[in-house]
């Protein structure tokens, strides 16, 4: 079991209904974490239903969905960036 700070931005944040939470999980990868959260509550399922439009960062670095959670402190979920 690991403890993660999970943060959400933009419409991912709005669908889940919060900006930050602490999650205790058995997940080994981002994919596992997404599946675990989606199974917990519908609002996660709603946010994560199409992962092709969700980006993920571990400790402020962009990673792919199969990235391992070993040593991760903060996981962020957000839509593709639209700055500039």
């Amino acid at each position: 079991m690991i403890k993660l700070d999970v943060v959400y931005f933009a419409w991912v944040r709005e669908r889940i209904g919060l900006a930050k939470e602490q999650v205790e999980t058995e997940a080994k990868t981002i994919n596992d974490l997404v599946a675990e959260l989606s199974a917990r509550e519908e609002r996660y399922q709603l946010a994560f239903q199409d992962m092709s439009v969700v980006k993920v960062a571990i400790d402020q670095t962009l990673v792919s969905l199969d990235a391992p959670l070993d040593g991760a402190k903060e996981v962020a979920f957000f839509p593709p960036m639209t700055g500039g």
């Binding site: 933009a10 962009l62 593709p80 960036m81 639209t82 700055g83 500039g84």
Partner: peptide, 11 residues
């Protein structure tokens, strides 16, 4: 690069 890699979102 800023458009795709900097974590900003517009509403």
């Amino acid at each position: 690069y800023l458009k795709t890699d900097a974590p900003f979102w517009k509403k």
